[in-house]
Simulated scan of single mutants.
Amino acid sequence: MLKEQIIQSLNAVREQKPLVVNITNYVVMNNTANALLAVGASPIMAHSQQEMAEMMSFAGALVINIGTLDSVWTPRMSFAVEQANNNDKVVVLDPVGCGASQLRTETSRQIAASANKLIIRSNASEIIALAGEQAQSKGVDALDSSDAALGAAQFLVSEYGANVVISGATDYVVTKEQVVKLNNGHEMMPFVTGMGCTLTALTGAFAAAGDETGLAAAAVLGVVGEIAAEKSRGPGSLQMNLLDELYLLDENALLERLKLS
């Protein structure tokens, strides 16, 4: 049944072509915009408070990625979340580097607390730090396993009323109702910068089309990464092939390759 739901979500994104507003970091803007286009969504990288109220009145979801955080960005993010709340839209939070600095940790918690409809997509160390536990990280890179973050993820579900996606060698999607384990993807994927950010952006697209758990995006990127890696010599060609496979992904590939429980 979960596989069918994922396929239906992919079809919905391609049919609806939802607009996804991204306040994201400078490193990944091009990558994430191209990934959204490839899967069938419509990206806009909107950072100005002057247009945010209007933008969130017709956009499908808001993605907040704190990767290149500073004092200028923080109030913009807070204002954007307010507008998402006013329009009953999902906020997808990527707390990049949470735990690496007090600024990132406090900002992540403030955004999480202020969003009415929230999905948190992050690596294990960031999830653990966001929950207030001691995490092992090096900058924005996780040193904790996805399994180690399950308790922290369940705390965040309870604390913020959020759904949580832990990405890593194994992905977990944690909601109030269930925990889904995904074992797709490829070991080459962490060598492409912004792969997690790409998942966050895709999570926004699927949320805009009705999947507010984060499951469909994680499943799709895992399968696509697997297929793309088989055709790639290294991280450079993987990045290119990933976009092609996102664009070409069909129902049969999902049914054949998805490993979930």
Rank of each mutant, 00 (worst) to 15 (best):
M45S: 07
G210P: 05
L156F: 07
V39C: 02
I64A: 04
A33M: 09
L143M: 14
Q102D: 12
T193M: 12
Q16F: 08
A229D: 05
V20T: 08
G236T: 06
A113D: 10
E251I: 11
L19Q: 01
N25T: 08
V180Y: 10
V90E: 06
A152K: 03
S122I: 04
V96G: 04
V91N: 00
A218V: 11
R14A: 06
N184M: 04
A253W: 04
A112L: 11
N22C: 12
V72R: 12
K259F: 01
A59D: 09
L69M: 06
L93Y: 02
Q154I: 11
T24E: 01
L103Y: 12
V224G: 02
L246A: 07
I7T: 09
D211V: 08
E106N: 15
E212V: 15
N11I: 12
L238P: 01
I64F: 00
P18S: 03
A149I: 13
E51Y: 10
T203Y: 00
S71N: 13
M1N: 13
V179I: 15
K259T: 11
I6Q: 00
G139M: 13
A131W: 00
D141V: 14
T105M: 12
E226I: 07
N241E: 13
A218Q: 09
M77V: 02
V224M: 00
G204R: 06
A149K: 02
D94V: 08
V28F: 04
S261K: 09
A112I: 06
A201E: 04
G185Q: 10
A217S: 07
G185E: 04
F58V: 15
M45C: 07
G196M: 00
G40I: 03
N34S: 08
N123G: 10
S145R: 08
N85E: 05
Q134D: 12
Q16A: 13
K117Q: 14
A84E: 10
A129R: 08
A41C: 04
G139P: 11
L150P: 11
A46F: 01
K117G: 07
S108V: 10
S125N: 10
L62T: 07
S145P: 03
A80E: 06
N163T: 14
A59L: 09
G161K: 07
A153W: 06
T200I: 09
N31H: 12
L93Q: 02
L246N: 05
Q110S: 13
V20Q: 02
E133I: 02
D244Q: 06
N116S: 13
I166L: 03
I127F: 06
S108N: 05
L19A: 08
S261R: 09
G236W: 00
R76N: 13
M77R: 05
Q49W: 01
S167A: 12
Y26V: 10
D171E: 07
G132D: 07
N65P: 09
N241Y: 00
A209L: 04
G196A: 04
I66V: 12
E177H: 14
V81R: 00
F155T: 15
G222C: 05
A124E: 07
H47A: 05
L37M: 15
E256K: 15
